[in-house]
Design a protein around this nucleic acid. Structure first.
Lengths: 206, 206
DNA sequence: GTTCACAGTAAACAAGTGTTCACAGTATCT
DNA sequence: AGATACTGTGAACACTTGTTTACTGTGAAC
């Protein structure tokens, strides 16, 4: 698994890796691969699991050590960006394979991301601003936030090494985007836009 | 080029396509490939160009036929989603290769997307809500919007065929996300969050 | 009517690919 | 001491890959 991640450090996508290539870098004969994985696909799935494991650790730590609400966005984004910088191979792998090659990898990555969205949604519901929101609206804003964070990850990974100033710049962009979203929260639905059809549909569930 | 796009219709990524495979599907001998492209990479770049060409057409049409501001978001999103549905191969290709394999493809795709962000930023500046915004803030909100649209594209491409109801559902999600952003517009910076460090930095450019 | 650029062909090349097989060392448990 | 699981080996298999070479039609230009 380490050998595969190492090969992915460059511009390669996972399904451009050959089994022989991986075993060569692992210092092992091709046939030995089958002692551990049935397939390159299984290797990929194991890497997805490993990668999200590190990310889940971060999330758990974030939840257990709550910060003053005022600086919450600022701190969260900065720790996140620093974390991405600390584990570039895993994040790059996930980002690449989210759309790239293997169907099973895509599926499992997206399932994990959907999970994050849902968890974020319930986290949000505990804040006063989002207190009375419907779960559907919470999911909506949570996915908006996750999209922004994913885009931030992308920018972070493209950063040249040893440039903390640019790192701060990326974090600042993300922070402002999230702040914009939070600013909207108190005004949502209390200022509902009146276009007939769209609004009528909102009410179907009531 | 058509043969390559056809091969990409499934779950394959572009750099898993072999030159021989493409020529085989094009009904031509491998060596004939070199009459048209020097490389698979050149083929890829040509496909990027072709794909964004169709997208630019949509954007131009959208700009030339302005809709009443009230329904602007609703209409724009719906035409966009329908457009993605009509050109799935091109959009899927772009989305895949945005992170996937070839470095040159990634670079040219991102350049095009950055262009869209900038154009959207200047479009936004013409609306009363965004009238007095700095260009930096406009870029920030434009990229937030583009992120949401890209995510919408992803969802749209995953839709099963012939399900206009789910298509409407995806469009509705995107519409609500954009509405949320627009709702925030009038309150941006007029209700600036006071955390010391972050806000101080905003002012560096003044 | 000849020239010329263009698109396609057939064959060959060295090299890399996934997978299989029977076999060997080695640590652990009984 | 012996059986049992693991992990790794080396050789072989049938294929696919990108690229080069000299050669062949074909339509348009002059």
């Amino acid at each position: 698994m380490d050998a595969a991640l190492l090969l992915l450090e460059g511009d390669r996508s996972f399904d451009s890796l050959s089994l022989r290539e991986v075993t060569r870098d692992a210092g092992v004969v091709p046939a030995a691969f089958y002692r551990h994985f049935a397939d390159m696909e299984q290797l990929g799935l194991a890497l997805v699991e490993e990668s999200f494991h590190t990310l889940r650790q971060l999330m758990r730590a974030a939840r257990s050590a709550p910060v003053p609400e005022r600086q919450l966005v600022h701190r969260s984004i900065n720790t996140y960006v620093r974390y991405v910088r600390a584990h570039p191979t895993h994040f790059r792998f996930i980002l690449r394979e989210r759309f790239g090659g293997m169907a099973s990898l895509r599926a499992s990555i997206r399932a994990e991301i959907r999970l994050f969205v849902s968890e974020l949604a319930t986290d949000l519901s505990r804040f006063p601003n989002f207190n009375k929101w419907t779960t559907e609206d919470l999911q909506m804003v949570a996915s908006l936030i996750v999209n922004a964070v994913v885009a931030t990850t992308e920018l972070t990974l493209d950063l040249p090494n040893h440039r903390p100033d640019e790192e701060a710049e990326v974090a600042r962009l993300a922070e402002r985007q999230l702040l914009l979203i939070f600013i909207a929260a108190p005004h949502w639905r209390s200022t509902p836009h009146p276009p007939a059809k769209a609004v009528r549909r909102y009410r179907e569930s009531e």
